[in-house]
Design a protein around this nucleic acid. Structure first.
Length: 576
RNA sequence: CGGGGCGUAGCGCAGCGGUAGCGUAUCUGCUUUGGGAGCAGAUGGUCGCCGGUUCGAUCCCGGCCGCCCCGACCA
């Protein structure tokens, strides 16, 4: 492709509201353009990288034995009511919905469990037809609370979604493993440094699930990992080993009330009394669809609400307002005391971090007073225990006890053992060899194509622009004519362009009448892995320059040997 | 949904009660040709939308829409 006939504009300055590196560079390189919040257009150049990413996913999925299908994006409400998701997604306001002319409700699918299960239930009746894994790579719609970072979190985006159907759990394990292997191959081919972590099952429900995380500072997720044993989990899911307790081996002191006028917050009390936050017991009052619940944990720890939801067995959880806290516990916010709670009326759960709490400080159950010498076993009667404190960097690993680390990550893929939730709800069953009917055991899998592409930019860029991995570059090679006005230079560049194309090379020819500096800047910004310069100094010696984008390493080759030299560099880049 | 901020040329921004300006990009000419050159000229704007105040509003006031950031959780 010749730039002079292409539709491509690079820009010096990114839109002022762009934050993430990938957003800025993809915009500046002229590959994406924002149409509305979380809605992006891909230019011809942007589409090339996007398509390459999509192709890698398709190739690996086909190789894994999954079969491509196309499921409707426009889906009727009835389908979603069969699975029970309409009401739920509606409540979470994630669904884009619309009405047809007869006022029937439809949605733009955010995912396709219902549609695919409906397809399979009509076709599969026997265990002999299983397993089967179906997938598609199509646009998804989600009315995200907060779209951001360009392609990273959009409201309309291209997503691979796969669904496996098996006769039995062992089958699911195999299908899941096949997806896991395909995912690893895909992200490796995309040149990404990724890690696989345990994840919470989230809104969809199900059992085991793992996320593929690309480590990058702009990641929206926090990833907990242990370098010693390889444990890894999303922060929402992360567990920890036993943290050292501040009250170990202490003898019990009597319970005394201490005045703490106007000191409701943990930090206030800590400073006022000159103690550590770990010495305190925090009482948090939550509201759920099942009523109020009080969570007790050590003052220096934070609640992992996802874990707390599991402990309580509730779907929704939010801190109660000040008025509600007072109404529920009889104490104002900041002064709630476990020993003064109306235990018979309130549900109370305690975190393992205060299991043996002795001589702790906590609220006195009335304004401006706390208590010291609090002994949990003696002063309160906890009936339900759980682990819902959020992991912190340095906490002990739940497996090996070594310190945990926390990093930012971008979730590019998710694999999920779903079980029979949808097959039961939608009646997708098979008959086994004994003639008995069972719901199919499902897995569900997703990869964000645009997000994967953007993640590659997050991990591979420098001060001059994008440094595409060969596999995702819009074009692998930029051929730059340094002086198109000079006939011999132009003719040599034209000839080399033809030769590269005839050799099947993926080449973009910058034949514009611009100064060399402009072309170098643009080539670096867009990030072609290989650049070939024709003209100027080297050309006088009958040479061309071949530049590796990654490190700007330059080698020269005689004009006649340029094709071979490009091939050699390309082979090097393929090799890593 | 709450808080904050911003909507002025394709992009980045300034301005200000008297109907708009800078940089960049674009176009023309000259000059230049190895890291976003220089000179000269030119094109380009219902100053987000609606209403109010005023002799007069891009500016002040009100409403709406759009966009961005933070929060929606720790007492």
């Amino acid at each position: 492709m010749r730039w002079s006939r292409y539709f491509l504009q690079t820009v010096r300055e990114a839109p002022g509201d762009a934050e993430a590196v990938s957003h800025i560079l993809l915009t500046r390189a002229g590959m994406i353009r924002r149409l509305a919040a979380g809605i992006y257009s891909l230019t011809p150049l942007g589409l090339r990288s996007h398509r390459k990413c999509e192709r890698i996913v398709r190739e690996e999925m086909d190789r894994s034995g999954a079969l491509e299908v196309e499921l409707p994006i426009l889906q009727p409400r009835e389908l979603w009511e069969e699975s029970g998701r309409w009401e739920r997604y509606e409540r979470e306001e994630i669904l884009f919905h619309l009405k047809d002319r007869k006022a029937g409700d439809y949605c733009l699918a955010p995912t396709a469990e219902e549609a695919v299960t409906t397809m399979v239930r009509a076709g599969v009746t026997s265990y002999r037809q299983l397993p089967v894994t179906l997938y598609q790579i199509r646009t998804k719609f989600r009315d995200e609370i907060r779209p951001r970072f360009g392609l990273m979190r959009g409201r309309e985006f291209l997503m691979y979604d796969g669904y496996s159907f098996d006769a039995g759990e062992e089958g699911l394990d195999r299908s899941y493993a096949a997806q896991d292997a395909a995912y690893r191959a895909i992200f490796r081919r995309c040149g990404l440094d990724f890690t696989v972590v345990q994840a919470d099952s989230g809104a969809i429900g199900g059992t085991a699930s793992e996320e593929f995380m690309v480590l990058a500072d702009t990641g929206e997720d926090a990833v907990v990992s242990c370098a010693a044993c390889g444990y890894g989990a999303n922060l929402e899911k992360a567990e920890t080993g036993r943290r050292p307790a501040p009250w170990r081996d202490e003898t019990e002191a009597p319970l005394v009330e201490v005045p703490t006028p106007g000191k409701g917050g943990i930090d206030d009390v800590v400073n006022f009394l000159g103690i550590t936050a770990a010495r305190m017991i925090k009482c948090l009052v939550y509201e759920s669809e099942q009523g109020y619940a009080v969570a007790l944990l050590r003052g220096d720890l934070e609640v992992n609400e996802v874990a707390l939801k599991h402990v309580l067995g509730v779907e929704h959880l939010a801190l109660a307002s000040e008025e509600k806290v007072e109404r529920a516990t009889g104490a104002p916010v900041g002064y709630v005391g476990p020993h003064k709670l109306p235990w018979e009326k309130l549900r109370v759960v305690a975190d393992e971090s205060i299991r043996d709490a002795v001589n702790a400080v906590t609220g006195a159950g009335r304004r401006d007073w706390h208590v010291a010498g609090f002994v949990l076993r003696r002063d309160a009667k906890v009936e339900q225990w759980g682990s819902f404190a959020q992991a912190r960097a340095g906490d002990p690993c739940p497996r090996c006890g070594k310190p945990l680390a926390i990093a930012r990550g971008i979730e590019v893929g998710h694999i999920f053992k779903l079980g029979t939730k949808y097959s039961k709800a939608l009646g997708c069953a098979y008959t086994d060899e004994k003639g008995e009917s069972h719901p199919a055991v499902m897995g569900t899998y997703g990869i964000g194509v645009g997000r994967t592409m953007a993640s590659a930019v997050e991990q591979h860029h420098d001060g001059d622009g994008i440094v595409w991995p060969l596999s995702l570059a819009p074009f692998e090679i930029a051929l730059v004519s340094l002086n198109p006005a000079d006939a011999p230079t132009r003719e040599a560049a034209d000839a080399l362009y033809d030769a590269l194309r005839q050799a099947g090379m993926d080449v973009f020819y910058d034949d514009r009448d611009e100064r060399p500096g402009v072309k170098f800047k643009d080539a670096d910004l867009i990030g072609f892995p290989i650049r070939v310069n024709v003209g100027g100094r080297a050309f006088k010696e009958g040479q061309v320059e071949i530049v590796r984008r990654r490190d700007k390493n330059v080698r020269t080759a005689p004009l006649a040997g340029a094709l071979e030299a490009v091939r050699a560099l390309r082979a090097e880049l393929l090799g890593g």
